[in-house]
Structures are given as structure tokens and as C-alpha cells.
Amino acid sequence: MDRALHERPGHAHLLHTPQTDSIPFSRPTTPGQHAAQIGFCGLGAMGYPMARNLAKWRREHVPGSLPILVWNRTKSKAEELRKELGDDLITVADSLEEIANECEVVFTNLAEDSVVKNVYEAFAKALNESNPTKNKIFVETSTIYPTVAAELDTLLSKVPHTHFVTSPVFGPPAAAAAAQLLIVMSGDYRSKKEIAHILIPSVGRKAMDLGGNIEKAPTFKLIGNSLILGSLELLAEVFTLSEKAGIGASQVQQFIKDTMPAPPLISYGEKMVQDNFDGSKGFAIDGGLKDSAHIRKLATELDSPMPALDAAHQHMLTARALHANQVRRGHAHYGVLDWSSLVAGARVAAGLDGFDSSKHQKVVPED
């Protein structure tokens, strides 16, 4: 997906002219796109480009817009964004309490459920102490387990004038950088309407409405990620079979380009073929394992077997174990693995080298 997004001719105009069906809500009459104080918490691989795009868009398209107030557990990351965009676009918050009290709209993009809970507990504590009189909307964009969303909603609903929306996003960091994320939303209708017009097209290319049940958007996010992860597992198995047959994964990758050129298949296929498993530029394997654990838990609760996900989970564990051994020996090529490295699990199970496909026998084209 990331490569296709960058190579798509003329994609930049999409940032300013969203399709008419890209937002499922009419534009709010009030407050609408006004000079609200917006906060953003979590400046990781996804949050950093999201906050950057949001700040730049509002300065260019929303008259009188205020600098985005940002917070990150490692403050240097927030200072980096402020330095990149300038004080007129970014202000760094000293605490979560400052974010909760000063902002009308707060976006969060955080690594895992426990961190999300801690951040929202800090928000709730600050709000209960300050008794806000203005409406506030908190928007969680991470991948969390659905019941966690319900806990957060219960936590914030006790605070007057406070609303909560789940709004997970689909797309790798490259899609976030290009403001081409797919955004899924559930929760309070009026709040979703406001948030959709803030995020499209500043951060994403399209919003989907999953209704009022706060758990539906996080559930849909897990379903979508299961499709992506299942596709990675299928790629890994097919590529490994082609390597064992002495044909080579690159031949199969070309077949995919010719017959089923879906962006995720092409981009992740290229990473596997080229042994390009740099998680610092993609989706880190720890995040993949967290997501697969959530998906398997959901499948278990709903009695809906997903054997492909079970295999993908085990292959990611194998890849991570192999990488940890390389790190101990000082032979690791990457500090963090991308989740496409799960192909290493399939390769090793088939008796091949996990991370170096140059050691595999391949077809040599004749002159």
C-alpha cells in the first residue's frame, strides 16, 4: 500500500479535493471547522505524520486556526515536531492534564491498550477536577480491543459535556504521511460528524460510519487487520513454496503484479522478496503480534476459527525469536522487524534461511 500511494500519479490533489462520498456526514453547522483548540497525544510512526498533516491543513484552510497542542511520553519527539513546523503550528504540552483542560478536541494514537487506559484515566481525573463547561470530544485512533473502548467511554461519560469517539485508521506510516488513511468511526453521532470534517482530507481520504456502538469501529479495525495479516501469511507460504521448488519468490511476485495487483500484496510482497524487514519504516512486528493476539481473542469469544491467523501469529513469534538471537550475536540487520518478516517463520519451517533469501536456489533465466 505504501509504495502504491507514493507512485499514484497526481495523488496530491486528493488532499484538497475529497470525493463527495468520502465523508458520510453533512458538514456541521456549528461549531464546524472553526478555530477550536486541538490536542494530539502520541507521536509515534503513525501519530507524528497525522499530527503534522492536521496542523498544516488547518493553518492553510481554517481561518484563525490555533497551533495544535501536542504531547508525547518522550517529550523530545514533540519538540522535534514543533521544530519542524514552527511555533505557529505546534505547541508542546507539559502534561496530559494540560491537554485535557485546554483542548476542545483531543486525538490519541498510542501503542497499546495499557498505555491508552493510563492516558484516558489521566484525562478523566483532570476533567473531574476542573469541571469543564465547554463541549469536549476525545478521539481514540489506535488499534485497541473493543471492550477497552467501552471502558474509556464509561470513564469519560461521567464528565459533563464530554464525548468519546473511536476512530481507528487503516494504512501504513507512508499512507499517514500522504494523508491517505482510511478512517473508521463509531460513537456519538454529532461528535463523529465534527471529527470527520476535521480529519478528511487533512489526515485521511475517507471516513466510514459504523454507528453509535462505541465498540464497532475497534472491532472492524481488527477484522480489517486480520485480512491484511492473513494475506501476509499466504504470501509467506506461497513464496516459501516457490523457493523450495527452485523457482524463486520474485517470479511469483511478478505473477501477483500481473494478475492480482492489490497494493498490500505488491508492497508487502516486495519486502519479502527483497528481505526488506525494516520495522522502523513499516509496521513493527510487536504491533503485529499485539493485533494478532486481539484478533485471536475476538475470534475465540465469537467461536469463529481463524487458522490462517494462528499460523501468522506463530510465524511472527518465530521471526522475532530469530531476530533476538541475531541481536545477541551482533548480526542483526535491523533494530526493529517489520511484520512482513513473518515469512522467516515459514522459511525456517521449510528448512530455508529465515532472513537471507540469497541463499535459496532460484531459476536462472537463459539467454
Results as ranks from 00 to 15, higher is better:
Leu14Phe: 07
Ile183Ser: 10
Gln254Asp: 11
Gly212His: 08
Ser357Leu: 04
Asn325Leu: 13
Thr219Gly: 12
Leu152Ile: 15
Val159Ala: 02
His6Gln: 09
Asn276Cys: 07
Thr141Met: 14
Ala51Phe: 04
Leu317Phe: 06
His294Gln: 13
Leu235His: 01
Asp87Phe: 00
Ser114Ile: 05
Leu43Asn: 09
His161Arg: 06
Asp87Gln: 12
Ala55Gln: 01
Gly335Cys: 07
Asn325Met: 08
Gly248Met: 03
Glu79Ser: 06
Met272Glu: 10
Leu302Ala: 08
Pro49Ser: 12
Gly204Met: 06
Ile247Glu: 00
Pro132Cys: 11
Pro305His: 13
Cys41Asn: 00
Thr300Phe: 07
Ala312Trp: 05
Ala236Trp: 04
Glu79Ile: 00
Ala179Lys: 02
Thr147Asp: 15
Thr133Cys: 00
Leu302Val: 13
Leu309Phe: 02
Leu66Lys: 15
Asp353Ala: 14
Leu302Arg: 15
Ala126Ile: 01
Pro160Thr: 03
Ser358Trp: 04
Thr30Arg: 14
Lys216Met: 14
Asp303Glu: 13
Lys281Glu: 06
Leu96Glu: 03
Gly269Pro: 03
Ser191Arg: 02
His333Gln: 15
Thr162Leu: 03
Ala321Ser: 15
Gly248Cys: 05
Thr166Cys: 13
Pro49Gln: 09
Leu317Pro: 02
Phe25Asn: 05
Ser95Trp: 09
Asp291Ser: 09
His360Leu: 06
Phe138Trp: 00
Lys77His: 12
Val116Asp: 03
Arg296Val: 07
Gln33Lys: 05
Met1Val: 13
Leu155Ile: 13
Pro49His: 00
Lys221Ala: 06
Leu298Ser: 12
Arg328Ile: 11
Phe170Cys: 11
Ile183Lys: 04
Gly212Lys: 13
Leu43Cys: 12
Val106Arg: 08
His197Phe: 08
Ala319Gly: 10
Leu210Tyr: 12
Pro67Met: 07
Gly64Leu: 08
Gly330Glu: 13
Gln253Tyr: 15
His197Val: 11
Arg320Gly: 00
His360Met: 11
Lys193Gly: 11
His13Leu: 12
Ser142Lys: 04
Lys221Gln: 03
Thr147Lys: 15
Phe283Cys: 04
Met1Lys: 02
Phe283Trp: 06
Pro63Lys: 09
Asp113Ile: 08
Ala284Cys: 01
Leu317Asp: 03
Pro168Arg: 07
Pro201Cys: 13
Pro146Cys: 12
Asn118Trp: 05
Leu352Ala: 06
Leu302Trp: 12
Phe220Pro: 00
Trp71Arg: 10
Thr74Met: 02
Gln37Glu: 14
Gly351Gln: 10
Ser142Val: 09
Leu156Met: 07
Val364Met: 06
Pro132Ile: 08
Ala12Ile: 13
Asn213Trp: 06
Ser202Asp: 05
